[in-house]
Structure formats: C-alpha cells, structure tokens
Design a protein around this nucleic acid. Structure first.
Lengths: 211, 211, 211, 211
DNA sequence: AATTAAACGAGACGGTACGTCGAGTCTTGAT
DNA sequence: ATCAAGACTCGACGTACCGTCTCGTTTAATT
C-alpha cells in the first residue's frame, strides 16, 4: 500500500524523503495520543516531525487521510495464531482488537474518521482498504481453519458463506467497539468468553438447522 | 430531561425563550441533514433558528453537546411492540434502529460525538443519559417479556442477567452500527433475520448449558 | 442643565431615583480613571453604580453622552479670581485648565468625545453646552476685567471683539490641550508664563496698531 | 519609515506582499472617509483591500496603529515654501494644516488616536514619530529662515530657542485643531491672518524685551 | 563537474469558524 | 412609571487552523 497521494514515478528531481514519511506518521500518532483527533492540527504534526506543512500536503490530501494512514499500520499487528479451537481463536482476536482500541491513538481516531467517512467517499474507501480489510481477513482465516478442523460444515453456497462471514465480522467488531467506546466498559477475558460463547452457540444452532 | 447547561432557578430577569430552544434544536437537525456534522457551524445553526449566536452559547457549551441534544430526541421513537416472539422482537428493534441510523442527521452525528466523547467525560455522560439509556431499556424490556413468555429461563442471579443484557445490547447495537457505518452495507430484513437467528441460537445454547 | 434625555414632567408613576443619577456619574468617572474611555463599558458602570443597565439608558442615549455629562461637572471648578493683571489672570486659567486635563478622567475622555463629535452633531452640541461654553465664559470675563482695568482698549466694534475672544480662546485652550496630550509635556508655571507673555505681547501690538 | 510592527529581517519564507501594504492603507483611508474612526472595522478594511483579516493583524497590532500609519502619509504634503516673510509663512502653514484637518479621514481619526494614546504609550510614540515630528520640523525651518532674514534675533541660548519653538508649535497646531474640531469654526484666511498677527506681535515683543 | 528538476523549510496568503464581548433593546416581576 | 435582573439581537473582535502559494535552498540523478 502506498501512502502517497500520487504514485509519482518520476525519475528526475530530488526524491521524497522516506525519513519524512515515517517521522510524519509517528508525529501524527504522538499528536493523537496527546491531543486527540479534534485538537490535532497539521501545523502541530509538521512541527513535531521537523517538517514543513507543505511536505505533509505533498503526501496526504487532508488531515483525515493522514490520520487513517497513521493509525492503519497499527492494525498490522492483528494476527490469528491457531489456538486449537474456534472459540479460543475468537476470544483471542476479540482481546487483540480490544487492546488495539484501548490505545489512545486509535480510540480517539477510529470513530472520528469513520464519522467523517459518512460524507467522504474517498475516505471511506481508504478506511476500507487500510483498516477494515485488515480485520476482515481474520474472520475468513478463522472460519476456514474451523472448517478444516471440522468445527464448521463445508458449505457449498459461497454466497451464504460470505454473508455469514460478514455477519460475524460486524457482530464481533461492532460489539467490541460498542462495548469499548459507547458503553465504556472494559473488554476483558470474561466478556470475551461470554461473547465467543454466544457466537459459538449461534453458529452451532445454525449449523444444526441449516447443515 | 433539561437541555440546558445549568438548571437556572433564577426568579428574576427575563426568562429564557422556550421557542428559541426548540427552534435551535430543529435548526441543528436541519443543518446536520444538509451539511453533516463536520461542516455544521454554530453561526449557521443560529442563522437558521433566527437566533443570535450568543443565545446558543448561553444554553450549550459547544457544538457536541448541542448535537447530542438535537439528536437525542429522535431516539424517543424507538419502542418495542410485542410481536409474539423474542426473535421477532429483536428483528423489529434492529430494523428500527437501522432506520434511525439511516437518517442523515444521525448517521453523520452519532459516530462523531462518540469519537469526541473519548476525550470529553461530560459529553460521554450526556450521551449515556440522552441516547444510550434510551436504547438499553429496549433490551431489558425485550428480555423480561421473553421470560414471561417462557422463551428464556428466569435466572435468579441478577449479576449474570445484567451481564447478558449488556452483552446483547453491545452486540445488537454494535453490529447494526458497524454494518451501517463501517461496512456501509444495508441493514435490511434478511440481515436482521440472520442476526436475530444467530442471537437466538446463542441464547438457546446458553440456556441449555446454564439453565 | 438637565442631564436627562427627556424632561419627563410626568406626574404619575414612580419617580426617578436621584441617588441613581449621582451614583451613575460617579461610577462613570471612577471607570474612566481605572479603564479609560475605550475600555469603559455601560455594564461596568451600571455594576459600579449598583444599578441596572436599563436605568442608564433611561437617562442617557448612549455612552458618549453619559461620559460628557460625567466629565462636564468637573469644569464647574474653573473660575477666574481677580489677580490684578491680565497676564496673571491668563497664567492662572492656563494652570487651572492644565490641572483639569491632568486628571485621568478628563485626559482620557475629552479628546475621545471630541473625536466622536466630528460625526455626531447632537454630541457636539452637548459638548458645546456642557464644556466649551463653561470655558469660554472665562475668556469673556477676563477680557472685560482687563478693559475695566484699562489694560485693553474699549472697542466699539462688537464683531471684532467677538473674533478676538474666539481667537484667544482657541489659542489658549488649544495650546494647553496640545501641549498636554499631543506633545505630552508638562504644562507648568514657566510654560504658562511664556504662553501668557506671548499673548500679552500679541494683544499689546494689536492694541497699538488697531487702537 | 517602516510601517510594519516588526523589522522582519527574515531571509526565509514567502516575503510579505507590498501590494497588500499599500492596498490596506488606502482601504483604511477610504473607510475613514466613509465610516469615520469609530465605525471603521478591521474586517471592513480587509474586505476593501481584498485581503484577509489575518494579513492586517500580521502587520498592525490594532486599529489605532493602522490608522496612524494610514493617516501619517498625508502629513508628508506639508511643506514650507519661502513666502518672503515670517507672517506669510505662518499663515500659509496654518492654512495648509487646516486643509489637512478638513479632510474627512484626518478630521475623524486624529483626535481619536490622540485620545487613545493617553493610555497607550507605544501608540503615543508612534504618533510622535509619524505625525508630530513631521509637523514640528516646519516650525524649526520657519524660525531658522526668519532668523536668516533678520526677522528674528540670533539667540545663543539653545534651550530658550527650543522652548520657544515648542511653544509656537503647540500654539499654532493647538489653535488650529481647537478651532477646527472643538469650536467647529472654519479656519479661513482671515482667521489665519489674525492668528499669525497675534504671534508676530508676541514674538516681536519678546525680541524687544529679551534681545 | 555541471545541469536539472523536484523536494524541502519557512512563512505569508485568503478564507472560514471560533468563542467572547459590548451596545443597546426587551421582558419579566416587584416596588 | 421606575427599578433590578437578565435574556435578547446584532456585529465586531482577535485567534486559530485550513489548505495554498511563493520564496530561496538542498539534493540526487542525469548529463
């Protein structure tokens, strides 16, 4: 994924500083931690990064796109180790995602850019590509692994499979976000267990009925 | 619920105009529809309401508090008619909530104020009192009705009951919000059916195991 | 001189508080001393006087008229004791006027209201009636006394006499104001002596030539 | 003379627009003519100059400093042609100064900034440097020329000479301003003749007595 | 080594909204 | 009718940030 506004494959002229890139993204995260999304300013980020404002705008069209890219990289840490059972995998991913949401830079930024994206189609697309897809692949991987283990039946209707993947994704991610940010309650191991148990029951019932 | 910042039990002086109150809240909703949360300005709202900017600031400390109050009243429409079964009740409330989220004034505002609330404790409290509690009572009502119908067992451990209420609330509300705003997919009847079926299965399995 | 906006000879209703009148004027002078003309506010004056803003506006049309009236009364102290010679009389009045101008309430207010009066005919009239005429009568008195002493000839052309009175008035008042406020130099006894000597010389030459 | 607040010896960054400088000063004078000092607003001036408000504030700290600079340039027109006699020179400068004071931009602005300067030392210094000194040099030039002509004696006490220069300056400038703005009477040729005759008489008497 | 062209820092620019403040008016209930 | 209190409209304030635009100055790849 290229963080720049344009690919810029020009062969001549001074090349862009890659140190500037990383310094800006780090400065953005630091500013998010200290100030939160709404108090973060481009001038402040530039100052922290030791860079001119122009250098920011040469790379990102506006504050929201910068913030998305600054936060997106954090989602790379999400992974799905094989813990032996679907329920264990779900619990693990729930706690991982919750830990990410507890970090001040994501807590303040994620909802804000999503809110902005309701009126900004390019931003929504960037969020989807940078963040949402990174999470969604965990659902796919977990489901496939569960099928291989025999915990879930091998469906032959790909549409139904996709629909269930989507549903599980919205339920898991939505529930964690809602618990963490709206209800403002801790997403801890007991809660993760209760959530995954609920899902396991629901999936089991569906498998029994529809399988 | 008092929309004002202070209780204002002053006996002397000119009383505050209640027409101004309602005109401002209506203007705020109109501005949300037209402009969205981030483009909405206090000056514009004042203009639409035919009111001076100072009159806004006399009542609300900032844009977020105003928006919360303007949107909160919409959540009064949420209700829980008895449709005969828990699954039907869940489906109905999901679609109702989704319809609310589809309205442009809530779609653009809700995530934004939640995002702001991560750095603003009074705002979080205001959201909880004005919006979240309004939704949560539906969960309680639905669960109690299901118990009366015999669809759910009468638990004698109130802590466990509360925990399950909270879980269901976060799952339902979170899933709907995530589907609508993050995945940007429609929350339609088939999806609502799939979600409620998942929950029924999960609750049934829990009842079988724990009852 | 009536300080009120309207004569108000109505016989019915609650009569206006005369204590309020004096309290307001005193508060205005106090505010002028502390804040100066441009920082003085009607609300502040009302607060100092223990009076509602309405009460101010019932008596004066605006800030400038209030300030003129508050300052005008100070000009009542100007008087012209007979010191035996025209030059001594002039010196005395110069120093008296300078002392008045040194007071912070007049220093900051006088030029300000004159400046405002260049675009406000009623204000100019009020200043003329309240302040300028109070000063001008000193010139007339001094000139008449000098004529009685024989220091100045008895002219029979009233137009020429008026013109000279006006000239002397503008020269004396203008020079003192300019020295005090523009040049920001002290108007002390030596300077007063030099000014009066200049005038005596000029009047004497005119008398010799024109007499 | 530099009209800016700071010397700005910065070598880097975009240089300030000199067109903006002149456009702002012109717009200020135009606004003074139309609105007068008290109705003049920074936003209006910015609009007239086709410039953002911030551009004004980058150069001038407040309205008064801006107005002083805008008006100061008009005082460059004052000059002292040799008319052959001291009295003629005085009459000429009086009428010149009066003509300047009659212009609406100076009439409304001059007293106002002087009034403000009684509470604002930097403003007073700015007025002195920009306006007062421009006028005062005319007095020096006129006195020196009169000495060369033999109309005034060559004094060897520089302190006395300075004191007389100052006195004459305060008398002439003060009388003109007072006549024009306080008495609100025309400063025409007859009045200028009477004033200069008075001064000639006074100076002559002093020369006779002190020489 | 000289040329070239883009990237760079600095900071001024036009614009828009902010939240505050003061002027002067109006609306209460009480005196 | 006046008073104190305080809400009202209006409009300006001075600040902050946005995103853009010059400037003069690097800096690497290409000649």
């Amino acid at each position: 994924m290229c963080s720049r506004t344009k690919p810029h494959r020009s062969r001549t002229g001074r090349p862009r500083s890659t140190e500037a890139d990383t310094a800006i993204l780090e400065a953005t995260r630091a500013a998010l931690v200290e100030l939160g999304w709404s108090k973060l300013t481009m001038g402040d980020v530039a100052g922290r990064a030791g860079v001119a404002k122009t250098t920011l705008y040469r790379r990102w069209a506006n504050k929201n796109e910068l913030v998305v890219d600054a936060v997106a990289v954090l989602f790379d840490e999400l992974e799905l180790p094989d813990l032996g059972s679907l329920q264990a995998d779900i619990e693990h991913v729930v706690l991982q995602f919750a830990a990410l949401l507890e970090r001040p830079e994501t807590k303040t930024a994620l909802m804000a850019v999503v809110a902005e994206s309701t009126r900004d189609e390019p931003l929504r697309e960037r969020i989807r590509a940078s963040i949402v897809d990174r999470q969604k692949r965990l659902v796919l991987a977990g489901r496939e692994r569960a099928q291989q283990r025999g915990e879930l039946p091998h469906h032959f209707d790909p549409v139904a499979v996709d629909a269930t993947d989507d549903l599980i994704f919205d339920v898991v991610a939505g529930a964690v976000v809602h618990r963490a940010l709206v209800s403002a309650e801790p997403v801890d191991a007991p809660w993760a267990t209760r959530l995954s148990a609920l899902l396991m029951g629901g999936l089991g019932a569906a498998a029994t009925a529809g399988g």
